[in-house]
Simulated assay, not measured.
Amino acid sequence: MTRGMTIPETVTIHIPFRVVTHGGRKEMQLPDSAAQPRRTDNTLVKALARAFRWKRMLESGEFATIAELAEREGIAPSYMTRVLRLTLLAPDIVEAILDGKQGPEVTLAWLLEPFPTSWEAQPMHFG
């Protein structure tokens, strides 16, 4: 534009996207060709932090059993056991979650499902 030209009052921008549900929330998903910003999932990060904190508390002898720690935390021992399994995730998977590079199918519910403890056998839905 050159000086003196009028500026249009309405500007139309076309951005291709689709609406997807992720973790119970609706989000816009850009096409694969678009640059994707990192999307750190606070629920996953919080679960990882809890898992490693609980593991440290058990290993230090602060609590003798999972049942004792679960009672202190006010949660079911079975849930605590499933969350504690997150400490068995491969380091590159933990890093991908912390960096927000996990795939859209990676939710807390998905991670709490049984997975192989061997790092090489763990599914790669990251990055």
Rank of each mutant, 00 (worst) to 15 (best):
Q29N: 07
Q122G: 07
S33Q: 11
P104E: 08
P114Q: 07
T12W: 01
V19K: 15
L69P: 02
F63H: 11
D32S: 07
I97D: 01
R53V: 08
E9Q: 14
E120G: 00
G74H: 03
E71D: 11
T117W: 05
D32H: 01
V94T: 11
T65H: 10
M124H: 12
R38P: 01
A96R: 11
R72H: 13
G23L: 01
E113D: 14
W119Y: 13
D41G: 02
K26N: 14
T65Y: 08
I75R: 03
V45A: 12
K55H: 13
T43L: 10
E9K: 13
W54Y: 11
E27M: 11
V106G: 03
E62Q: 15
T12M: 09
G23Q: 06
P77Q: 04
G100W: 04
R18Y: 03
P8M: 04
T43M: 08
L84V: 09
K55N: 13
V20Y: 03
P8S: 13
P123I: 00
P8A: 10
L30D: 08
Q36T: 07
G74D: 08
S78L: 03
G61P: 10
P123S: 07
V11R: 15
L69N: 02
V19H: 06
W110C: 01
G103H: 12
M28L: 15
E73C: 08
L86V: 06
A67F: 03
V11T: 12
G61M: 07
R39E: 14
D32M: 00
V94N: 04
T2N: 13
Q36L: 12
P104D: 10
P104L: 10
P31W: 00
P91V: 01
A35L: 13
T21E: 15
M5A: 14
P91Q: 07
I13C: 09
V11G: 08
T10L: 15
S33R: 11
F126P: 00
A109F: 02
R72I: 02
E59F: 00
P114L: 06
L89K: 04
W110V: 00
P31T: 02
A47H: 05
V83Q: 10
E105P: 02
G127Y: 09
A47C: 10
P37M: 08
E120A: 12
P31V: 00
H14N: 14
R18F: 02
P91G: 06
I93W: 00
F52K: 12
G4C: 08
N42F: 05
L108N: 02
T6R: 13
T12I: 11
A35W: 09
Q36K: 14
E27S: 05
R85D: 13
P123A: 08
G24H: 04
A51N: 05
A67Y: 04
T6A: 14
I15C: 10
G4K: 07
Q36I: 04
R38M: 11
V106P: 05
L30T: 05
E113S: 04
R72N: 12
P91R: 06
V94G: 04
R18L: 13
T10G: 01
I15L: 15
T12L: 13
I13P: 02
K101S: 09
L89G: 01
R39I: 12
G74N: 04
